[in-house]
Structures are given as structure tokens and as C-alpha cells.
Amino acid sequence: MTQALSRSTEHLPGQLFHDTVFMEDLRRQMLKFAMLQVRNEVIAEDAVQDAMLSAYQNIERFNRQAALKTWVFAILKNKLIDILRKEKRYTSASILEEGASRNDEALLDELFTEKGHWQKEQRPQKWDEPDHDLESHHFWRIFDTCLDALPAKYSRLFMMREFLELDSNEICDNEEVSVSNLNTTLFRARLRLRECLEDNWFEREKAT
């Protein structure tokens, strides 16, 4: 508790960079975010280093951890978009997808009846207003876990669309997938994420 309190107090400019726990934590989060996008450790490391360096050069702007974090992530995001735009990537999509689509059939069977309607107990429930939930540290841990549980290709395309906010055409172009393939993959990614969040967060919250 004391640690949580001291961590949220204001810092003098530059002092943030000497908080090794915070910096190491931040670096790890950034690297993870970058790796999910570019799938190459060297390139991901470079992007993270660059973003950190820009932050360091603008050191006087930050006196709160949150401000620094928002800023480096924005820089990192732009770097990743540049990298993705420059390299056209050829992933062995068909191999990755095979196992995933078999699991998808199972998920669809579990969620919907043969006639294509929601199973009674699987019907989406009302979620609490995000304001309340989004503040919770615990929520983000669950969100991370749900994201990790997606097949690699799903989380990658989902993140390009929702985190980097690239439009569909650009993603298709970069990833060499058809629009209909992208749409199906995004649908399945969202279906799974939604299910995972509802089961592990929203329903559980209600039960307590």
C-alpha cells in the first residue's frame, strides 16, 4: 500500500528515469506491445529504444509516471506503424490458422444453437459502465490474459486494427490477407475476447 501511494506521487522532472522498477516495468510492457506487432525481437527492441530515447530527450515534460507512459506509447505506436508500412510481411498464415479455425468451430458450436441462435446461457449480458471498471488494475490483468489467449494471428490483426487504428485496407495490404479473411479473423478475435472478458471479469464482478 505504501508503495502504491509513493508510486503515484509527483516526481521532479527527470527523476522518473531513475526509478528503475518503474522504467524496467515500462520497458517490458512496451517490448511486449511491440513484439506482438512486429514479431522480431531485434526490430521490436530498436523501436522501444527509439521511443525511450525520445522520451529522455523531452525529459522536462514529465513529472508523472502516467504522462511519461502515455507519451512513450504514442511514440512507440507511430514507430510500429512505420515499420509495418515499410515491410510487407509474409507470415505462414495458413499454418497458424489451421488449428485456430478448428477451435473456432468448437467455440461457435458452444455459443450458438444448430439454428444459429444464441444458446440461452451464452447470451451476452449487460456490462457495467467502463468508467468504473477501466480504473481497475485487476481488469487490465484480465484483459492482458484474454489477449494472450487469442491465437497469435488473431491478436496481431486485432491489435493492428484496434490498438494501432490502421484501416482494413492497410492491414490487408501489409499482411497479404483478403478483406473477407480479415473480417472473419477480426470477428472471431472479438467473439473470443468478448467471451473471455465476460466470463472472467464482468460476470464475476456481478457475482460478488
Binding site: A66, K69, H137
Partner: peptide, 12 residues
């Protein structure tokens, strides 16, 4: 929100 990382992760 996740990308912005707002103050969420600071609240521990």
C-alpha cells in the same frame, strides 16, 4: 484506453 495506459496502471 489500453494503449493510452492512462492512470490505470498506477493505481495498483
Amino acid at each position: 484506453q489500453y494503449v493510452k495506459q492512462n492512470d490505470a496502471s498506477e493505481k495498483g
